[in-house]
Nucleic acid binder design. Structure first.
Lengths: 167, 167
DNA sequence: TTAAACTTTCAATGTTTTTTGAAAGTTTAA
DNA sequence: TTAAACTTTCAAAAAACATTGAAAGTTTAA
């Protein structure tokens, strides 16, 4: 496999993986491209490499910046904007975990909490609803703590120790 | 909030969360319904509760069984098939983690491995591609271990200890 | 056997999401 | 100021994905 093949394989894999994880293909592909690019790229560069339209590039770059994993960069003496991705995968994971917690997990936790606090009326179905949503609530909170405190935090020794322990 | 409201809220929340996690809405809703149902339900019951067609119910039930989180059950003397979900959320998480590892993470790890092993040709871009895919490969393997060995395994004391440690 | 009771399949249809591209908007240099 | 260089927005088109429902398939009781 030569460089071009490897690059394309990586970009398209990352792209289809992205959609499984709730971000769209173009967004994931732009991210993949920036991640392996030693130099910042302009919007023009990105459109060309990935064969996507200007609008598409613009919108997805914005989303990536909202996620905090892609940044604008300005070359002195140039009007054009350039983009780079967070290159440290530890930091990348931290940022992604943090955002997914905020966008998905926390709203879910709130609803699980509301639902699990309805009035116990003695019926089987109410008991089951309360029991199961309580259990999910507890699990979601554990997961939330993991995502915010364990992933990518400076205390990465925890992960290493854990992996050694269970491997 | 009464039982009906709470139930509907739970089902629709679980349904839209599902699509964020890569399974479709009907599938997630069927799962939610079975999770809080004290009795096994027939396909008819499910179609009625969720207002979905027979075909839809059939296909998504099959997928849930493929994921190993929903089971067929036969009532004696009855021809009809009934369905229940895995009720233990710990076991549920284990099963989901295992399947996602198998379906998504492991194929990705393989590709990251292939890509990170291309010939180093001395160019900056090749160096960067190798460096980044190696880092992602390592991270993906750590995550894979976590998903298969830590989540839901009998050794749940690990999770508890970890949460206490970092909370 | 047969036929009733049930489940599965799949082409057609409907829905949602993504993408395009051209017009509107913004910034900067002169 | 103006106009060139660039970015953003958004309605319309395309693509992807989910759902329906009727026909085909399967199982079981008699």
């Amino acid at each position: 496999m030569n460089y071009e093949e490897a690059k394309n394989k990586f970009i398209s894999t990352w792209g289809s993986l992205g959609s499984l994880w709730g971000i769209n293909k173009a967004m994931a592909q732009i991210h993949a491209l920036l991640l392996i690019s030693p130099e910042p790229l302009s919007m023009e560069d990105i459109m060309e490499e990935l064969h996507i339209s200007r609008g598409n590039a613009s919108m997805n770059l914005r989303q990536l910046m909202d996620w905090g994993i892609v940044f604008k960069e300005n070359k002195i003496g140039e009007r054009k904007e350039y983009f780079t991705s967070e290159k440290d995968v530890q930091e990348l994971a931290k940022q992604i975990a943090k955002e997914r917690s905020r966008r998905e997990l926390q709203p879910t936790i709130k609803i699980l909490n509301d639902v699990s606090n309805i009035n116990e009326d003695g019926s089987d179905k109410t008991k089951e609803l309360i029991k199961q949503t309580k259990a999910l609530h507890e699990m979601a909170e554990t997961l939330d703590i993991m995502m915010n405190k364990v992933v990518g935090q400076g205390n990465n020794w925890i992960t290493k120790a854990l992996v050694k322990l269970v491997k």
